[in-house]
């Protein structure tokens, strides 16, 4: 099991992390090292075993449909990179 440079670029694209060609070799080497470590688990017989998503078998709690949070938009927007009139600013997406 080994990732090609194209596969690494594709995953990086999915994860929205830019990878330069210069970084590629080292990154690919490390990822393939990790994947070959993980590969041993394919030999484990898990037929009939239910996947375990969580340490505690919990059901989602429900709460009363009541307002309990105050509106703190100004506090939260104060730490944003760019805001205007209560809106988060990002580069134009529609020409």
């Amino acid at each position: 099991m080994s990732l090609s440079p194209e596969q690494v670029f594709r995953i990086a694209q999915l994860a929205r992390i830019e990878i330069t060609t210069a970084e590629m070799d080292v990154m690919r080497g490390h990822l393939n090292g990790i994947l070959s470590m993980i590969d041993e688990m394919q030999a484990v017989d898990t037929r009939g075993v239910e996947p375990m998503a969580h340490a505690q078998e919990l059901t989602q709690r429900l709460r009363a449909d009541e307002v309990f949070e105050m509106n703190r938009r100004d506090d939260f927007q104060e730490i944003a990179p760019e805001v205007e009139n209560g809106l988060y600013l990002v580069p134009k997406v529609i020409e």
């Binding site: 990732l3 690494v8 995953i11 990086a12 999915l14 994860a15 929205r16 992390i17 830019e18 990878i19 990154m27 490390h30 990822l31 990790i34 994947l35």
Partner: peptide, 20 residues
């Protein structure tokens, strides 16, 4: 670019493994 420059190498590796 924000994520490429804002995350270090180990975090990138784990995010990529996770995405894969």
């Amino acid at each position: 670019k924000t994520r490429a420059q804002g995350f270090g190498a180990e975090v990138k590796r784990r995010v990529l493994i996770g995405a894969y």
